[in-house]
Design a binder for these strands. Sequence first.
DNA 1: CTTCATGCTATGTTTTCCGTAGCGTTTTGT
DNA 2: ACAAAACGCTACGGAAAACATAGCATGAAG
Lengths: 115, 115
Amino acid sequence: MKAISPGRKVRGSKTGKPIMALLDLLGRRMTLRVLWELREGPLTFRALQTAAATNPSVLNTRLAELRQAGLVAHEGEGYALTPLGRELLAVFLPLHVWADRWADKVRVEVRKGGA
Amino acid sequence: MKAISPGRKVRGSKTGKPIMALLDLLGRRMTLRVLWELREGPLTFRALQTAAATNPSVLNTRLAELRQAGLVAHEGEGYALTPLGRELLAVFLPLHVWADRWADKVRVEVRKGGA
DNA sequence: CTTCATGCTATGTTTTCCGTAGCGTTTTGT
DNA sequence: ACAAAACGCTACGGAAAACATAGCATGAAG
């Protein structure tokens, strides 16, 4: 397993700068989604699989990466965000609201330009 | 080309909820990176390719998606964030700072637990 | 009219992801 | 006690995405 952590070589960047490592991690399928699905509390492996609508192999890969990155941990109640993970997610929470406004905007744009 | 826009079917979610469409879009390789590289101003296709350390085919795919999503536009000076794109990026700007703190934290965690 | 930069396509290889089946273990129910 | 269910997770084959490189068409500049 190629661990993702700051300072290590990263897809698309040899510098290993933290921001690049982070963008690399977050740019993998289901990473953002998993963090998102954990926003309200811990989930079991299988619940997470259902919530994120993915398969065990990808999920397991992502969880391994997220655990190594210190963003997710596996305790008694299942998988949960670490304090660090909660910090990161906090940055994304505004996205929920923004996404709805985006939806309206883009619909409008499409109508203006489209058929 | 499978356009990404809110309300459409999305990888990993049939609901088409805006947030899911957004997470899908952002969870593709180089999407976040491209937005990030455009944070300081417009770049030409080739400059962007260099900055993001990617290849023309992926870059072109991402740019098409980002344009359809109304986040990036192609004008005289090259590719640039739209107002909407700048809004979205604004959400991510704190990541830069956060990533550095993350780097320190994770290094410490690794040292504590590791060899 | 050559040279250069631009935006982009084409092609083949490698990597990643997907979908399903299933294993070993622990909990739950009877 | 024992079957049934849920748990975390692995294996594997096929599909899709990404990577790397080459090259083309256009337009501006020398």
